[in-house]
Amino acid sequence: MKRRCEFHDYRRTGIYHITLVLNDRRTQVLGRIVGDLNRDDDDPNGPHVALSAIGLMVQRELLNSISKYYSMVEIQDYVIMPDHVHFIAVVHRDVVSRNGHVTHLGHVIAGFKKGCNRLFWEMTGMERLTDGYVEGEKVPSKACSDRPPLFDSGYVDVMPLQSEQLEQQRQYIRKNPRMRLIRMSSSGGLRIQKGGVDTALTFPALHGYLERECDASQMDNGTWLMLKERLLDEGGKVGCNTYGHRSLLQKRLLPVVCHRKDKSLFERQKQRCLQAARDGAVLVSARIAKGEQDIMAAVMAQGSAVIIVLDNGFAEMYHPSEEKMQACLEGRLLFATPWHYRYHRRDEKISVAECKSMNCIVQALCRRRDDWWQYDE
């Protein structure tokens, strides 16, 4: 979760969405989520975080200490959540410390966390180990290093490049308490569930499928080993983690895969899918091809249920948009992924072998070939 843009110079101006997480997220020492989901976010009684004393300290440090030491850094939208912090940092000019040294955003964040650590230790009775001394007497450095920091090492940053991206990030920050309260209020559908999904797809079977479906340039032994390492292994079969109500897996499942050879028949395929969904079937797709995206969007628009197979695993802090979260809560949407999580750039393209793997897994989940729409009436 410590993402960086490898080509960006963090000494320069820019707008950043920064996320910091607690060293021990189970403690949730920064506060608790309270409020009424039926109230607006700007209503005092709407969803919000009731900050603890430690949370209030972090808020003061965020709003005062960073600009005190780095006047070129402005903190705008922010939210202190029980176990993490989001904020928009606007760097108006090159980052320079008060003594005139050119530095970068990482040092700014490190300084903020260092100040929070010192105050956190004081508030929790660990201040006696400050600077390697206990009541005036020097102690071994290991004793000082044993004090737990408030925040985990590193940070996550998102750099909005366009105005609409920036507004999306602002809305994400503002809605964080509401999204958390929705998840807390659900009966279990709004959480990641690991394993326990029977795809019935063995690794030798998937390997054979890929050898048949891919060209030699798209599928060699090295590619297969990479895929196998990334895929979830559950007793020799491809496993899946999910987000949403798994009850959808018990219904009649139909795969949605669009092939170039069937392009002239797309409208027929779409109408067959829509009708099947109206009749109670759950459509399953990896939404790779444009046609698949079109069909799945139309199915959701008519209020029918779908299962979406993702091209990456769930990150630690994963949760979808408010609209999709509501669909999960209502039992109309389930996310499934056969992959371990890995960070990849937004512009990184998915390989043919990965696409074919997901289409095979979609059919395995449904226990049905993807050309069903041509024959079933």
Rank of each mutant, 00 (worst) to 15 (best):
M296R: 02
R12H: 14
I15V: 15
I66L: 03
H107N: 13
V309R: 03
S304Q: 11
M123E: 08
A281I: 04
G189P: 08
D24Q: 09
Q28S: 15
A298G: 02
I80F: 03
W373H: 09
R252V: 13
Q168I: 05
R93P: 09
A277G: 08
L63M: 10
A364Y: 10
W372G: 08
I54A: 08
K237F: 12
N359E: 15
K290A: 13
V58M: 05
I295M: 03
F112M: 01
A277Y: 08
S163D: 14
H48P: 05
Y155G: 07
L129P: 06
L274I: 08
K114V: 11
R252P: 07
D233K: 05
S186R: 08
D347M: 07
V352I: 13
Y341V: 07
A353D: 10
E348H: 13
D77V: 00
Q28Y: 06
G100T: 01
M179S: 13
V156M: 12
Q218D: 15
S285G: 09
D371M: 05
T124E: 06
R12S: 15
L51V: 01
L150F: 08
H107D: 11
E127K: 12
R98S: 11
F151K: 09
L334H: 04
G244N: 03
Q28T: 10
I66M: 02
G189H: 02
T103A: 08
D371K: 01
D40M: 06
S187H: 12
L181M: 04
E322K: 08
E234I: 00
P255A: 02
G222P: 09
D131H: 11
M300I: 10
N221V: 11
L227Q: 05
F266P: 09
M358R: 12
R230T: 00
S67Q: 09
D36N: 12
M184Q: 15
I15H: 07
L254C: 07
Q28G: 10
L365K: 00
R287Y: 05
D279S: 11
R147S: 11
P177Y: 05
S145H: 04
N359T: 10
L129N: 02
S97L: 11
G239D: 02
E348C: 07
R260P: 04
M219C: 11
G136P: 13
K228F: 01
D77E: 14
L161P: 00
L254V: 05
S141Q: 14
G125A: 07
L274A: 04
S186M: 06
R26T: 13
D157L: 09
